[in-house]
């Protein structure tokens, strides 16, 4: 159920992002979702790709600092209150969200949200019990 996300340390330098993304393209890696957390000096690029193990390897081979993390992919109804419902379930279960990012229109069920929480397995259980669709890792990689 848990999705493997690849995070990369990116220095805040002109053109750097393009170079890193090109490494993935050159290795035929397809990106399903991404987000960037940025500070003044550096950014953290987070990626969901079709082949996380290969992505991790080629990025490391190119000398980058890489970390893989387990995240949850949730299908959210694409209508007002859809995301709020998911977040409230987590809140009521006392689960903290470290960060999240969303993209719309690819999942059949509506919007896809990637959530990183402090207790991933617990989160999956409470969401499932509340009837929220958790997208399988293999399905996410295919998107």
């Amino acid at each position: 159920m848990l999705v493997k996300q690849i995070s990369v340390f990116v220095e805040n330098k002109f053109g750097r992002l393009a170079e890193i993304i090109s490494i993935l393209g050159n290795n035929n890696i397809d990106i399903s979702a991404l987000s960037i957390a940025d500070t003044t000096d550096f950014g953290i690029l987070r990626l969901i790709v079709n082949d996380p193990n290969l992505a991790e390897k080629v990025l490391k081979d190119n000398g980058l600092a890489v970390k893989s993390t387990e995240v949850i992919a949730v299908a959210v109804e694409d209508k007002p209150g859809g995301l709020a419902r998911v977040l409230n379930i987590l809140k009521d279960a006392n689960i903290s969200i470290e960060y999240m990012y969303a993209f719309i229109g690819k999942s059949e069920s509506g919007a896809l949200v990637i959530i990183r929480v402090d207790q991933p397995n617990e989160a999956i259980n409470v969401l499932k019990n509340s009837g929220i669709e958790i997208i399988k890792a293999s399905d996410v990689y295919r998107l």
């Binding site: 996300q5 995070s7 340390f9 957390a37 500070t39 550096f42 953290i44 987070r46 490391k60 600092a65 890489v66 970390k67 993390t69 470290e98 960060y99 990183r116």
Partner: peptide, 15 residues
């Protein structure tokens, strides 16, 4: 220099 050891996926930890 960043290393896999010092790096983490969230900004808070890196900062």
């Amino acid at each position: 220099e960043m290393s896999d050891k010092l790096f983490s996926d969230d900004v808070k930890s890196v900062e």
